[in-house]
Write a protein that binds this DNA or RNA. Structure first.
Lengths: 253, 253
DNA sequence: TAGTGGTCTAGACCACCCT
DNA sequence: GGGTGGTCTAGACCACTAA
């Protein structure tokens, strides 16, 4: 008919919902405040629950919301900046290290890591598990792969495993001179064990930081660190990082 | 009854599906190969289409699959490494710059950027739009915010807008000495315009790299670059980055 | 035990791409 | 026009948390 048809592209409902909710978060909600439950929200907007959830999932991905099964959906605080791969060229376990060692075992690493580690596919390496906490919250979980060749004088260590052994292995590693390190960031999803350690559900989005420590022209250690993508902003380079704030978002009482 | 009950934690179906599909991708599929369509796959695994899609979405998030409406689902090649925030402290638009300028306009930036730019909330700045292509594919889209104070001698430039003006603005910027730069990476989702430029749907996951260029103690420019999270692995620091391969994954003919 | 978010189903229709 | 992935619905049940 003669109706003007400028609506050439009907925006998906969940996309429009996301926009509306974002504006509401910016103007009407405080950090930590609890949103109405999903069934109520869906009814209020006149959509199916699955459609509402699509919008909430995106907002959680962007770090605006936090959802917890059995509890509810809350407004998330701004992401915290965590520094990675600083230019200071330091071995893991050094004096200004934000990590704390949890465990150390001797294991065969995943096949995909054999090549960057320059070892045989079935060769066992020291695997140090570390975790990183910021503002009282777990933010990252790391697996450090250290070929036996990088820590040759480990015979005097008595601890067969555990945090004590982990620290001993890192101490040994620091006896070499670090040549340089290579870093990479990519998107991944949390495995079952990482999810537990990060207090998230399996499959949660994570930022995977891979660091190759190079000494004497060889890969002396390989770190695979998974950071919570919802709560973390990774800063690197000279220092600091840029603070981005959303709307007013008063602090909840 | 007396049935042994070791199945304490029933794994979600989509999680198990994802595992099965991952193994299949590693062993039985080639890069670029087309998977059966979603309805067939769902029927084959005996699940609803929505459940299958949950698994496919995760695999796409991890960069293992590529889905295109109207076309199908294909096996994605390994992510390509793109270097960001290298230690070489260079202005944007310098000689070894991977970007190419598209446009330049004078606009008021989003309110959230007024503070890091150290300008008034309603002050207009030069906004240079640039894009980055790698291996024939668009990988990133950037908005560069440059306060007028950073390019004082712009009067001689005749081009009122467009790529020519963008290049002129960048040339002017390079006359200052760069003190240092601060970088940050976080997870985001593509807006409508970024999605178009990156050849993705709105809401697609992206890695947002924020760079603050500092000269004479002030923020001389602020870059917000969004990289396709599905196809990119960001490398930074000394150089290179770590190559991680999945399974055999022969190249498709 | 009540209420929350997480998983799952079996449909339907739409937007897009190719031929 | 036929086939693909993208969106949406209206239900159901489950796993978890807290009172």
């Amino acid at each position: 008919m003669g109706t003007t048809q400028l609506e050439t592209v009907p925006e998906p409902k969940y996309w429009h919902l996301k926009t509306v909710l974002t504006e509401a978060l910016d103007s009407e909600f405080s950090v930590g405040e609890i949103l109405p439950n999903e069934r109520d929200l869906a009814a209020r907007f006149g959509v199916a629950r699955a459609t509402l959830r699509q919008a909430l999932e995106q907002l959680e991905l962007e770090g605006r919301l936090q959802r917890r099964r059995g509890v509810g959906t809350t407004v998330a605080p701004p992401r915290m900046g965590v520094s990675v791969g600083s230019e200071q060229h330091a071995w893991p376990g050094g004096p200004h290290d934000a990590w704390h060692a949890v465990d150390c075992r001797l294991e065969v690493p995943p096949a995909a890591l054999a090549e960057p580690l320059v070892i045989a596919a079935d060769e066992a390496v020291h695997v140090v598990r570390r975790s990183r906490v910021s503002r009282g919250q777990p933010v990252a979980s790391e697996l450090l792969y250290i070929p036996a060749a990088s820590v040759p004088d480990l015979s005097g260590i008595d601890a067969p495993s555990g945090a004590a052994r982990a620290r001993a292995v890192l101490r040994e590693l620091q006896r070499m001179e670090l040549e340089r390190q290579e870093n990479a960031v990519e998107l991944g999803s949390a495995g079952a064990d990482e999810a537990r350690e990060l207090d998230r559900l399996p499959g949660a989005p994570v930022l995977v930081v891979t660091t190759r420590y190079i000494a004497r022209g060889r890969t002396a250690a390989l770190s695979v660190a998974t950071y919570r993508a919802d709560t973390c902003r990774l800063t690197f380079g000279d220092s600091g990082g840029v603070e981005i704030h959303h709307g007013p978002e008063r602090q909840a009482s």
